[in-house]
């Protein structure tokens, strides 16, 4: 058991190294570099840029170094805890990310709670009352939720919130609370805006989670131990929650590995459409402008979180499911 965990942790290092190389390479792969996007953005406004100036700037940002030198500089900084500076924002990368982290995590956790709180009970209900009217209607809603693209749903809800509730379009705060310090009024304002991203981000995962829970639970309910327990007269609810539901939640737990990076990355498209200052749009912009230190650091951070998340879900599974525990012990 202990060995297994140690082995898992040690494997993280080479994994991350490969990821860092790949992500750096991918960011560098498109034609041009940060300067080309900087200059083309300037040209859009009508400014003219001197060819000599471009060369001088390229030297200054060390963009004319070979790629492995640039990689080495970046990864060396990372190991010393220096994430580098964003070209575009001219700010340290850490400052940019942490500025947006709070809101991102708030939205993601709110979404997660929403998803679990609706999907698990509905999934259980649907499984227990299979082919009932309730099951059918939840199935229908679930499929609709899966089918609607997030950005469209976001636009519709944005229209609704503006037309019916008169809230300002996009963002998480009304203009008057934007720079205000935290107060009850600001919190209520946040709640007023928060429901849209939570519902938009939540529906599709709720829908799929309902299906997963329902399917798994149905499998479990057909097993003989359930019948036996029933025959022995175990109360319905207690029987349901103690055995079949616990097993049925296995896939949910193994998904936690993917949930962790999602909490930090935010949903990019939805955030862009809704104008929410999470880390998602920041990453998108950094990638588009080849702001390589910012993009690279964010990709790295997401990878670390994925790896850690996978580890956590493994550990949770071991704790939750005796079968996995015993299998590993017997080896």
């Amino acid at each position: 058991m202990f060995n297994l965990i140690i082995k898992r942790i040690l494997w993280i290092i080479p994994t991350l190294l490969v990821i860092s190389m790949l992500s750096f390479l991918l960011i560098q792969l498109p034609p041009g570099d940060y300067l080309t996007s900087y200059i083309s953005a300037l040209e859009e406004t009508g400014e003219t840029v001197d060819a000599e100036l471009v060369e001088a700037l390229r030297k200054r940002y060390s963009l004319d170094d070979p790629i492995y030198v640039q990689y080495w500089r970046w990864i060396g900084g990372l190991l010393r805890g220096n994430f580098g500076r964003s070209f575009e924002w001219n700010k340290p990368v850490t400052e940019l990310i942490f500025e947006r982290l709070f809101l991102t995590v708030t939205i993601s956790i709110a979404t997660l709670i929403f998803v679990y709180a609706t999907a698990i009970p509905i999934g259980i209900y649907s499984a227990v009352n299979q082919y009932s009217w309730g099951d059918y209607s939840f199935t229908l809603i679930g499929f609709v939720g899966l089918a609607i693209p997030n950005f469209l749903f976001a636009l519709i809800l944005m229209f609704v919130s503006d037309a019916i509730f008169g809230l300002s379009v996009g963002g998480l705060f009304s203009p008057e609370y934007q720079n205000a310090s935290w107060s009850l009024a600001k919190f209520i304002d946040l709640l007023n805006h928060l429901w849209i991203p939570v519902i938009v981000l939540g529906t599709s995962s709720t829908a799929s989670l309902i299906r997963v829970v329902r399917g798994n639970l149905l499998d479990e309910l057909r097993k003989l131990y359930v019948v036996t327990a029933q025959a022995k007269g175990v109360p319905k609810i207690r029987l349901l929650l103690k055995y079949p539901v616990r097993v049925a939640l296995n896939p949910v737990v193994s998904n936690i590995g993917w949930v962790l990076p999602q909490i930090v990355s935010g949903s990019i498209i939805t955030s862009v459409v809704l104008g929410i200052p999470t880390t998602g749009p920041l990453l998108l912009r950094a990638l588009m402008n080849q702001d390589m230190y910012l993009a690279g650091s964010m990709v790295m951070m997401l990878s670390v979180l994925t790896v850690i998340g996978t580890l956590i879900s493994d550990l949770l599974l071991i704790w939750l499911d005796p079968r996995i525990r015993y299998e590993n012990q017997s080896r």
Partner: peptide, 9 residues
Amino acid sequence: EARQLFYTR
């Protein structure tokens, strides 16, 4: 094309 590509080309 993306404006960076346009610029490079």
